[in-house]
Write a protein that binds this DNA or RNA. Sequence first.
RNA 1: GCGCCCGUAGCUCAAUUGGAUAGAGCAUCAGACUACGGAUCUGGAGGUUAGAGGUUCGAGUCCUCUCGGGCGCGCCA
Length: 615
Amino acid sequence: MRTVVRAALGEALSALRSEGVALPENPEIGLERPRLAEHGDLATNVAMTLSKAAAMKPRDLAEKIVAALNRRAAEGDSPIAAAELAGPGFINLKLRVGAFHAVIDEVLTKGAAFGQHPPRDTDARVLVEFVSANPTGPLHLGHARGTVVGDALVRVLRAAGHAVSTEYYINDRGAQVLKLGLSVRARATGGAVPDGGYGGAYVTEVAEWMKQHHPERLASDDDLALARVAGERIMEGVRETLGKLGVSFDRFVSERALTEEEGKLELAMARLEAAGLIESRDGALFFKSKGKGDDKDRVLKKSAEHGGDWTYFATDIAYHVDKHTRGFTHLIDVWGADHHGYVPRVRGALESLGYPKGAFEVLLLQLVKLIKDGQEVKFSKRAGNFVTIEDVLEEIDEATGVPGAGRDALRLLMLIRSHDSSLELDIDVAKKQSNDNPVFYAQMTHARMCSIARRVEESAEMAEARARGVLSVPARFDAALAARLTLPEELDILALCDSFPGLVVEAAASRAPHRVAFFVLELAQAFASYFTRMQKVHNEPILPQKSYRDAHPDWVATWDWEKTRARLLWLSAVRQVYANALALLGISAPERMHRDAPDEAPEAAPELAPEAPQG
RNA sequence: GCGCCCGUAGCUCAAUUGGAUAGAGCAUCAGACUACGGAUCUGGAGGUUAGAGGUUCGAGUCCUCUCGGGCGCGCCA
């Protein structure tokens, strides 16, 4: 639809150019769907964006474009039926139905690639770093948002044609991992847990595992070596959890290997030193970040009395410098909003080293509140009473009886909010097998779409129609068949589908995967509404219902099968777009829902009407 | 105290990045419906976009201030 309309607009513009209007060769043509029906099917603001180049007032230019479009429309071979000047220079377009039907053609031709854009014509390489949780404990709910949003962002960026790699940075050196090692040792040997050490059941598990598989580590007094093995054990669990969430990384980067074995830390520090950005003070080394977006200088290397070690900040600079060194031109980090204070110093360091402004970008995610039984669940990591992602996944899988339900639920619920809005995750809603649960609603919609086609191809009552060759799902686009699609609901949904590829680009540009989630729910709702209205308002179900078949003994002969096939054609396109959108979120699109879930909860047992009439 | 984010319908949140009359889902009210996949569909009511000023053809969106909430302000990571 947009494709053919853009072509028509481009043609009108070049016609004007040949008449002497100063217009650029291949201008961007912005098209949007007006909110109000009387503003047409599509609207463009080209007259406003090109008015400067043409040295004309927006409305005057718009008038010329409108005239050109209407001239063409009168000749009868344009997708545009009528154009109208509106407001400050908008051009409202009324389209022929064929323009809507073209969406079906495009979707079925592109299939799973509808919404995917070709690689961008640039050398830009993007690296998205996300999760990067310390290997000091299992992933908990606080990590879930960054994990899911980061992963969905990557999918969206790739769909928009960006070259993207992903990395998980493992902070496997430094004080925190050492504390983990000491906590494990304490648990294994019955000693006291160190100050600020880790509690929680998982520490006990690691301690038990250590006794079994690495008793020599416990016997040795090399705390660093012990901590390292414990950290690796934790990371195994983290990777498993990521797998269950459907998240994979191109690379896991070890802070220890990067800095200690590969020497990247010295390299980065030498560059800072050479640039005169390091200052020695109070026995420590400082990065002169003050005035570079930060409000004070920051320690790179601690003084002897604080252990003399490099700080996390120093190694993080090394990591980010290394990202650039490896050829990535644009770095995106996904962090929790509680780290926002850390952004200026990293940015300051990278810009001081000459990397372009804007090459380092941080997506900050607001916090997640877990709601259970209508109450907020508070948790603290140190005390160990946090909710792990594993627990949540398991709880939802069990409650629904559907393996993978937890992953889909967690993913959609994390993606249904903008990144800078805090998020309430109601675990009780996530477990529901009803339409109050957006996850269930979203997936059921896809299952319903599939069930129609299944009915056509498999059901016993349609056997005779199949046998007579009047009923089948069209294999490819057929303009004559599509011409039977004239209901406003059908055309509206095609218009919505048509907006999907553009939406992907916008979602990528604004780092907003949640917009894809909203698209899914909007399409689901539009479909549900259409589906019901077909029966209740238009009295035109896609397939002949029992009532029709009973009333018409010769229903196979009297039914309008071509209209049915037109709708099946329509449906296969809509389903494709819907499935593509779900795939972009990493959420499965089931062909059928499990039916064995309990229909009614025990507490929903019918009660006697309080005022039942007596006799 | 300073910095960052947020404040939109009773609740949870959107808003095509500065565009036309601010929209959905729950909740509520009124109808229709007994099902081509499950309480579904249609419509109503609900708003000075926290408040005040400013920028311009045009502001929920940008700037300043006030109020309220969250987070951060370590030689932790």
